[in-house]
Amino acid sequence: MTIRLGGILFGLGITGVLLLWSLLPGALNFAFPTKPDYYAFQEKNIAPEGGFSFDGPLGTWDTQQLQRGYQVYKEVCSACHSLKFVAFRNLQEIGYTEAEVRAEAASWEVPGIDPKDGSVVKRPGLPTDMFPSPYANEVEARAFNNNALPPDLTLITKARNDGVHYVYSLMQGYNEVDPEDQAKSPDFETPAGLYFNEYFYNINIAMPPQLLDGIVTYSDGTEATEEQMAQDITAFLTWAGEPTLIKRKQTGWFVIGFLLFATFFGFMSYKTVWAGKKKKKGDVELV
């Protein structure tokens, strides 16, 4: 027995030593790190004062804001960015009537087929159409944008960490370079054709600043400041990314409330079933 145990331990010991040996390079690397200095982007996004209307478990959509955001998307973003998983009919969810949606859809041109000769043509959109892409394909999109690909915006608020605040921050991130950070990494400069944006992960973004004050004229009379437009487009894109967000939260309250009651009654039932099986102070087992 002792011999067998000794043998096993000896074998395991050898294995252990070899394993640890193979881990050595990492340890050396740790002791003598070679980490370059670089200009770091802002990982902490900003949020609008008072937050968004859809924030938190009790949030709701602000349809006025969503409609303003839609206007910003239509007049600014849609020049380069698609919204391919959203259909015009979905606009009814942000407060447009069926007739308005029909008219709105018709104001967009979508690819279609000529019923007479089958050639590819542009036709006015129908409510059932999806938002059209501004470019025919990725090659064209890159060719128009200095080889950068404008991402589809449908899911942008979900496809980035802290995406809602990321979009809001990015829209307002075209600031001046911080002189202190510049001093720390003197080689840092923004290459030609790119723009400094401290919320973008590699600091330099291909998209020029877009939300210049007054670039859109809101139909509801709201003043179109950069901050206002950033809020509105963020809200619209949040809705576009997850139209069921508010319904989900409302359903959640109901379900959790029900489950809490069910759990409570289940617990009381459990207590009743087990009464007499648990040891209590001064209990005498009557067997």
Partner: peptide, 22 residues
């Protein structure tokens, strides 16, 4: 199970109600 039986007389209604509810 004796311990259960001890509170059967006055406890039966409340206990059943709880199980039915759960």
């Amino acid at each position: 199970t004796t311990a259960d039986n001890m509170n059967t007389e006055d406890g039966v209604r409340r206990r059943d109600w709880i199980h039915i509810a759960a």
